[in-house]
Design a protein around this nucleic acid. Structure first.
Lengths: 205, 205
DNA sequence: GTCTATAAGGTGATAGAC
DNA sequence: GTCTATCACCTTATAGAC
């Protein structure tokens, strides 16, 4: 290993540590609420050293958000027109719920951004996200016309899936405070409930 | 009108203007993201004058949140055990959706607070809110035992109602960006969709 | 690449005149 | 009750030594 590779690997490790720390802090406090001090401390670096790797607070946040959008679109992309309609939609619901379970910080990062008007990510929404949703709404409308599922509004179906699944990440504090069970059964319970609800709602009449 | 009453009315008017401005700013930017400058300017007061009425930024935020919690619980309180189960739940869904339409800033104020860990409102959640939810979950469980509705988990039913309705306020920017319709029909569409979904999900098997 | 020191500007809150 | 002026602190970002 030569000096250049060594430096590169240190750089990659530090950049990764910064993004990990930034995800932790931004998702918990929002863009304005987060401070470089917190991120630097969480990453185990000094503040100037952090700014050696990223030019600004904004740059870190932008990199996080853009890096996540691809991941965020994946579950919906996997919805295939040639599968069984209800199975495809239920599988999408469960994939989204599993993302809320395994990537709650990513979900809260988006939630913070969108609740506050999506100033730094509106382009991704009106662009790639809208394109994908329009495409999948067409698929769902096709299923409706074939009589394979009930006549529902595909856009509002998708919104309700986003809402019900991301809720378990975004409003985690509230859910833990209210649920009478103390353990980690809430995602299994949620999966049961959501599967029942969407099966019932989609069954053609 | 004597001098005392006149001063009192001016005070009431200014305090109301401050709370209105604070709702506007806090709901859009979160606690940390909001500044007293913005709130004062929106309220049409100087910053020191604003702090003449409220001791601190925190005091304004606390007053807003505690004043709103009562309003927030009302729709669920109106769910009555002696009504028709499915009609009662659907009416609750539609009341919540109407609150998301008419009070979006209040919804976003809560969303901002809870996404960031509810540091200033956790007591209201573990206290009055949990008490109310436990009570209504019992009512719903009673309906299930009587075979009047399907066997669903009442807590997750309530979570899903919160999620699907508040989503139209909290993620308003995203919804507007994605929906193909330009007008204000989204709440009517949502009402149709949600009524269909919850009717189907609750119908006893 | 990493550090200490510090600049530059924003922000919550107070002092004191009117 | 309301204002101007200002303090004290925080936060982003940079300078420059090592």
């Amino acid at each position: 290993m030569n000096q250049v590779n060594k430096r590169t690997r240190i750089q990659e490790r530090n950049r990764a540590a910064i993004l990990e720390a930034a995800l932790e802090v931004f998702s918990q406090a929002g863009f304005r609420g987060a401070t470089l001090d917190q991120i630097a401390k969480t990453a185990g670096l000094s503040k100037p050293n952090l700014l050696y790797y990223y030019a600004s607070k904004e740059a870190i946040h932008t990199e996080l958000l853009s890096g996540l959008m691809d991941n965020w679109l994946e579950p919906l992309e996997a919805l295939k027109a040639d599968g069984d309609p209800i199975e495809e939609i239920i599988a999408y619901v469960l994939r989204k719920l599993d993302m809320a379970r395994s990537l709650p910080r990513e979900s809260r990062l988006f939630a913070n951004e969108i609740v506050q008007g999506a100033p730094r990510i509106i382009g991704e929404i009106t662009g790639p996200l809208k394109t994908l949703v329009d495409e999948k709404a067409s698929v769902i409308n096709g299923w409706i016309e074939e009589g394979k599922i009930a006549q529902i509004n595909p856009y509002h179906l998708i919104f309700s899936i986003w809402a019900t699944t991301q809720h378990y990440a975004d409003f985690d504090v509230q859910i833990r405070a209210i649920l009478p069970t103390n353990g980690n059964t809430r995602f299994a319970e949620a999966a049961n409930f959501l599967e029942h609800m969407y099966c019932a709602a989609l069954k053609p009449s």
